[in-house]
Design a binder for these strands. Structure first.
Lengths: 105, 105
DNA sequence: GCTGTATATAAGATTATCGGAATATGGCGA
DNA sequence: TCGCCATATTCCGATAATCTTATATACAGC
């Protein structure tokens, strides 16, 4: 049986990934650590918006961060998150092709 | 590069899993197909609420459904969704134990 | 200490999600 | 056909997520 805090953490993890900006941030960081100032220009959103997205990923236990001087460097905390993206992408791909076959929606 | 519809589908998949009831429905169905009338009593929620949760999972491409008489039978469409739950659970577990170690929150 | 740069947080408006009650749809048996 | 059962959908209120602007914090260099 799944304990309640674990279920809650699962929900938080999936919720953290249920946003296109946050998925792209994970993909970006899977290529190596980045400070916020390097992440910002990849998105046409305010600094505060990106900062909050990073916090959501951090609080879900998906990212690590360390401070170096006046910068904050974010990194992938658990490589399994990349697995999650890959698995979801393959489900997405299969689903999209089944929609094409059946002409569904 | 990830195509836009695929990213959108990933978002929809993760969004579908970002709810404790929907996670429990997946776990329930991983034990075998069930009609709605068998799923309902597992949750203290109205019929319309559960029906909506099932639709969300169905539209995310995670569940299949077939009609038999006046019943609708739901089933896991893609076994990879169970993988997603397991991977997220192991991330959750690691994160929770790291919180215990550091006394974090 | 002051100024500028980097980042996080708060406040507030807008939009999406969740839940239940009520309603619609469609098969089934009398 | 009529009424019942199983399920989906609509409507609407309550709650939560997202975004921007403005403000706070904290380090760096002078």
């Amino acid at each position: 049986m799944l304990s309640v805090p674990r279920l809650d953490m699962q929900v938080r993890i999936f919720g953290a990934l249920a946003d296109p900006i946050r998925i792209k941030i994970i993909m970006l960081l899977s290529g190596g650590d980045r400070c916020v100032c390097e992440i910002l220009p990849a998105f046409e959103r305010s600094q505060s918006t990106i900062s909050k997205h990073l916090s959501i990923l951090y609080n879900a236990g998906l990212l690590d961060r360390r401070i170096e001087g006046n910068r904050t460097i974010y990194s992938i905390k658990n490589r399994k998150v990349v697995e999650l993206l890959e698995t979801a992408d393959s489900i997405a791909l299969e689903h999209l092709s089944s929609l094409v076959e059946t002409g569904g929606d």
